[in-house]
């Protein structure tokens, strides 16, 4: 049973980490509190449900397609709905992103009235045995690809000039402007990128995770849990927090009912907000 918890928890945690990573970048670079982030995951899930790919190549192409769509959508949202709220006081940003999420939730509700659907497993094998635990191939591949993407993203953020721009904007906007970084472009790009990551995570989830419109809100809160627990210091805090969340959920749901597990997680999260609003895992250097 311990193995069961460990394996499913870690596999789920890696995907959570990927979702959290998108929010982390947006939160860190732009200081935008994006309450619609979980709904961007739904774009990936429902997008694939709508395309209904039947083979592995078509699945991969479809996944890239929804990522591209989500990126465009994110870009437009940032440009038209969020840009004017940046660096301004007031709660416009929070209310706009929440409302956007709600609008998307009910849009999916209308478009896909049948709840809890999945797509056919695109992977050419059905399940494998890991440490004596049988794992669905969709889950395994989702975790593997998420891990690969996480490593790739951290490489981009820490090792490329593009990432340098991101980090510059995150650390000090006046400084970034001073060295000639076109920050509105960086912001739009970051937001689009965050949305694309979320959509890919959704595409990875849909083969084994039945989808329902209210997942959006759950995933948003979970992504915030990850970002808050992981802290603003580094990507690895976010990844670690994703794994912790995955493990906690897996452990919880073996002992009590699913909704009670989430209740406990939400209450713990409330505690984290109160005692460590700057995050549990804090490293000295600020996202550097």
């Amino acid at each position: 049973m311990l193995m069961q918890i460990l394996v499913t928890g870690l596999l789920q945690g890696v995907i959570y980490a990927l979702i959290g990573l998108g929010l982390f970048l947006v939160f860190n670079v732009m200081r935008v509190v994006n309450f619609a982030h979980g709904y961007f995951v739904l774009i990936g899930m429902y997008g694939l449900l709508w395309i209904a790919p039947t083979s592995l190549p078509s699945y991969l192409v479809a996944a890239m397609g929804v990522a591209l769509f989500a990126a465009t959508f994110g870009y437009v949202i940032e440009r038209w709905l969020l840009e004017f709220t940046l660096h301004k006081p007031g709660h416009a940003q929070l209310v706009i992103t929440i409302s956007l999420g709600i609008a998307m939730q009910y849009f999916f509700q209308i478009k896909f009235p049948e709840p809890y659907q999945t797509i056919a497993n695109p992977w050419p094998f059905s399940s494998v045995e890991i440490l004596g635990v049988s794992v669905n191939s969709g889950r395994l591949m989702a975790a593997v690809i998420s891990l690969a993407l996480t490593v790739l993203i951290s490489w981009v953020v820490y090792r490329t000039s593009l990432g340098q721009n991101l980090r510059a904007c995150s650390q000090s906007l006046p400084g970034a402007v001073h060295v000639g970084i076109n920050f509105p472009r960086v912001y739009r790009g970051t937001f689009a990128f965050g949305a694309a990551i979320a959509a890919i995570a959704g595409a990875l989830l849909i083969p084994f995770q039945p989808v329902s419109p209210h997942f959006g809100l759950d995933l948003t809160i979970k992504a915030f849990i990850i970002v808050v627990i992981g802290g603003v210091a580094s990507i690895w805090g976010t990844v670690l927090a994703g794994l912790i969340l995955g493990l906690a959920e897996a452990a919880g749901s073996t002992f009590v009912s699913g909704s009670l597990t989430s209740s406990v997680i939400y209450l713990l999260f409330l505690l984290v907000i109160l005692v460590r609003p700057q995050g549990l895992i804090v490293r000295k250097a600020d996202f550097a």
């Binding site: 929070l94 809160i221 909704s259 009670l260 597990t261 989430s262 209740s263 939400y266 409330l270 907000i273």
Partner: peptide, 28 residues
């Protein structure tokens, strides 16, 4: 929330988490 000096964003997030927790408890 005041005791811990929580800002508006964490207030919204924290109260959302509370509602979700209560909802989950009611469901089980």
């Amino acid at each position: 929330m005041s005791r811990f000096g929580v800002n508006a964003f964490f207030f919204a997030l924290g109260t959302a988490a509370l509602s979700l927790a209560v909802s989950g408890i009611a469901a089980s």
